[in-house]
Structures are given as structure tokens and as C-alpha cells.
């Protein structure tokens, strides 16, 4: 196939579903890297696939359950938690606001505007930042800083992780407008850490065709999703910035 041949949706689907040989896969990835419109079509298909997968993670069961298959009922709590968290990601992808949403256990999930040091159910807090919106980022960092300050004054032992993924990864890039603020926060408080999603970093590097440098305070994690799931199922409070 010629490198300039137009790429069909069937080919993009085959790439997405891992159906292509190495050479063809490499050719299409290169085409996607250099062609914004093609990249957009690929991303759209990927979003559709992810949405379908997530929508059926936790199908409704019969009220009576199914005798003889109790392992499924035990497993469902985990799947419910997983589905709720991943849906927050989908919500981010599709522009759905989480405001007012009550996923799984409303006591453990907050939007940043509702984050209140006095009503927190857990002393372990994970804040996810996946936006480019400066107002939301600033508000989120301000809330976290306030939480750290109040807790230190009260002698309260808390731990905060800020996980940056998707567009939110930009706050941890070298030269970011938030770099100094993050440096100052981590210097002042040793119970806050900033984590960079490996998948978001990889995607950004593919898109830009170069390595991305992060600020020294950023810790690499393989995937934001994995981290959030671990923490939420481990009893941490989850905050969407």
C-alpha cells in the first residue's frame, strides 16, 4: 500500500482492534502522527470503543441474583467501583460534568468545589486533574493548599496525591505556569505528591513527536486510571479537579 493512500475507517478500526500486521500498524501510526484530521478520526473511534466497553462493565443483575453463581455477586462491588471511576474518565472525555453526581459511595467522591476539610470522610485524598482550564486548576490547587494548611494547623495526619492525566499533564511539564507553585507546595508540605500519568505522557509525546520533560516534583506512574482505582478501592477519597 502506498504511504499516501487514504486511510479508511475499516483500517482505523482494524488498527484500534489490534488486527494489523506490524508494518501496516507502523505505517498508520506514522500517518496519524503527521495528519491531524486522521488523528482526530482515530481518537473519535477510540472514544466510541471505550464508551461501549465502559457502559457494560456492570450490567444490571436480576434482583434475586442467580443461584449457583455467587462469585459474580461478590465481584459486583468491585466492578461497581471500577465502573464509577472509569465513568468519571468518560465524563471528562465527553464533557459531562460530574457536579451533583453520586457514584457508588457519595461520601468518598467530591467535586473540588465541595471539598471541605471539616467534612472529609478520609485523611487520604486523591485529586485528579485532567483539564486545561486555568480557573479549575487554580481552584483545585488552592483547595488542596488550604486543606494542607488547615490540617497541619490541626495536627491532622493527611496525605494528598494529585494525579495529572490527559490535558492536566501540562501542569507538570517543565516551564508550566504552575511549576513554581507546585515546587513551593512540595517544599512546604511533605504529605503532598504530584503524579504524572504514563499513558498521557506517552500520548503527548506521540502527538508532538518529541520527548516531554516534566518538573522534578512529578513522579511517574504507569496509568492514572490504575492509580485511582487502587486508591478508591483502598478507601481514599476521590476528588475531581
Amino acid at each position: 500500500m502506498n504511504a499516501n493512500d487514504p486511510v479508511s475507517d475499516e483500517q482505523l478500526n482494524a488498527l484500534l482492534d489490534n488486527e494489523l500486521e506490524d508494518a501496516e500498524r507502523a505505517r498508520l501510526f506514522e500517518a496519524i502522527r503527521t495528519d491531524k484530521s486522521l488523528s482526530a478520526r482515530y481518537c473519535t473511534l477510540r472514544q466510541v470503543k471505550e464508551m461501549v466497553t465502559l457502559a457494560y462493565n456492570n450490567p444490571p443483575l436480576l434482583a434475586s441474583g442467580v443461584p449457583g453463581f455467587s462469585h459474580f455477586r461478590f465481584a459486583s462491588k468491585f466492578y461497581a467501583a471500577a465502573a464509577a471511576v472509569v465513568l468519571m474518565f468518560v465524563g471528562g472525555i465527553i464533557g459531562w460534568s460530574l457536579n451533583g453526581a453520586q457514584p457508588v459511595d457519595s461520601a468518598s467522591f467530591y467535586t473540588v468545589d465541595r471539598l471541605n476539610p471539616d467534612t472529609l470522610q478520609s485523611n487520604r485524598i486523591l485529586l485528579q486533574l485532567s483539564t486545561l482550564d486555568d480557573v479549575r486548576i487554580s481552584d483545585s490547587l488552592e483547595k488542596i493548599e488550604e486543606l494542607l494548611k488547615v490540617s497541619a494547623a490541626q495536627g491532622r495526619d493527611i496525605e494528598v496525591e494529585v494525579v495529572a492525566n490527559s490535558d492536566g499533564l501540562n501542569i507538570l511539564r517543565r516551564g508550566s505556569r504552575y511549576a513554581e507553585r507546585i515546587r513551593s507546595m512540595t517544599a512546604r508540605y511533605d504529605n503532598v505528591s504530584f503524579m504524572a500519568c504514563g499513558i498521557a505522557k506517552h500520548n503527548a509525546e506521540l502527538k508532538e513527536g518529541k520527548q516531554i520533560a516534566l518538573i522534578p516534583e512529578a513522579k511517574d506512574i504507569p496509568a492514572a486510571m490504575e492509580r485511582i482505582l487502587q486508591r478508591v478501592t483502598g478507601g481514599w477519597s476521590y476528588v475531581r479537579g
Binding site: E10, C43, L45, V48, M51, V52
Partner: peptide, 28 residues
């Protein structure tokens, strides 16, 4: 392949999944 392609295309249209690059609404 053709059924899958049509299915995803139709879902994209129903869900109005659009692309960030073109700065359009991703979905409503």
C-alpha cells in the same frame, strides 16, 4: 469489519462524539 465500521459510525453520530482538534463539542 463492515458491520463493526457501520456500528461505530452510527454510535458516533448518535452520541455526537466529535473531535477536540477541530474544537467542536465532543458530545452532548
Amino acid at each position: 469489519m463492515s458491520r463493526l465500521c457501520r456500528a461505530r459510525r452510527q454510535l458516533k453520530d448518535i452520541l455526537e462524539v466529535k473531535d477536540k482538534e477541530t474544537n467542536k463539542t465532543i458530545a452532548n
